[in-house]
């Protein structure tokens, strides 16, 4: 019996020994956006795996066996933080048997820890819904945040892979320059969006609204993470009929039913936004994510 296990172990170990030693830094990114950023900054020196796809709700992800396996060999975990991944990432890290990615190690990087978060609650109580005590964690939809996170990540990559320090520095500089140009372009184009009133589903477009000056007048979830009741929706319809918003926003990962129902009731168009890299065919990288988001918003406000 026991030598059967020993044999399996021996086979597995020999497989591990035979496998070529890969020089690339293995990055486990929790979202497609962080995966895209790690790829931009790390180029060919990194091997990036995205733990989720754009159609997943990062709050609700299973600690799948495949993810535990990826955490096992990761050199860097690139997470959002602010408790966005609290339901599953800790399990991956605990089960990984990998000391390099434990929180507090250089191999554990949180985007939110580099940023000033919006909507930091003054008091936290779960009767308010799924409120994150450190602030709203959906930071990726403000491109300024991407630039800040990119700077910190460049430093972190150089720490983890000193031989590539100059390479990461060069790529970082190039990325910042490219991003800067794009920012100017986006902000020029987005000028007409300032003050446009929108209805959101979950409080996950806060950073986008903040960046573009969109005015969020209502959320379909009465409290974060709490689905609306019929009574609440009826109230919402009354309120919004009196003062109709310009747009209803939904993310690619959201179920369209609720917004479409509301759209029919108040006669306001729904705009589907990619939310994450890969959320729409056009949002194939970070630049594409913001280009497409703006195209869709501008298209709908014409």
């Amino acid at each position: 019996m026991l030598h059967r296990f020993a044999r399996i172990l021996a086979v597995a170990l020999s497989l591990a020994a035979v496998a070529p030693a890969e020089a690339a830094l293995k990055v486990l990114a929790t979202t497609p956006d962080w995966a895209a950023l790690a790829t931009e900054l790390g180029g060919e020196r990194v091997n990036v795996y995205a733990a989720t796809n754009p159609f997943q709700d990062v709050h609700r992800v299973e600690a799948k066996p495949s993810l535990v396996a990826r955490a096992r060999s990761a050199d860097l975990v690139f997470a959002t933080g602010a408790e966005l991944e609290v339901g599953w990432l800790p399990v991956l890290i605990q089960e990984s048997g990998n000391s390099h990615i434990q929180p507090g190690s250089p191999g554990y990087f949180e985007a939110a820890a580099q940023l000033r978060l919006l909507e930091v609650p003054s008091s936290v109580d779960r009767s308010m819904g799924d409120v994150h005590p450190q602030g709203n964690p959906h930071v990726q939809l403000d491109p300024h945040n991407i630039a800040t996170v990119a700077l910190a990540l460049t430093t972190r990559l150089a720490t983890l892979d000193p031989a590539g320090a100059a390479y990461y520095q060069a790529r970082g500089t190039e990325f910042q320059a490219k991003w800067q140009q794009a920012l100017v372009r986006w902000e020029t184009r987005a000028a007409p969006l300032k003050g446009v009133t929108v209805v959101v589903i979950h409080k996950d477009q806060v950073y986008l609204c903040h960046w573009l000056g969109l005015r969020e007048v209502a959320a379909i979830e009465p409290k974060p993470g709490v689905p609306p009741s019929a009574g609440y929706l009826a109230e919402l319809v009354t309120k919004l009929t009196a003062a109709p918003p310009k747009l209803i926003l939904r993310n690619a990962y959201n179920d369209p039913k609720a917004v479409e129902w509301l759209s029919g009731k108040i006669n306001v168009p729904v705009v589907m936004l990619p939310f994450s890299v890969g959320g729409t065919p056009e949002a194939k990288d970070l630049i594409g994510l913001f280009d497409d988001t703006l195209n869709r918003l501008l298209g709908a406000t014409k």
Binding site: Y108, E110, Q114, L115, R116
Partner: peptide, 16 residues
């Protein structure tokens, strides 16, 4: 500009 000391715990939520 990137804020100097953005959140309470520099390590992030994993160490909260």
């Amino acid at each position: 500009p990137p804020p100097p000391a953005p959140v309470a715990s520099a390590g992030g939520a994993g160490t909260a």
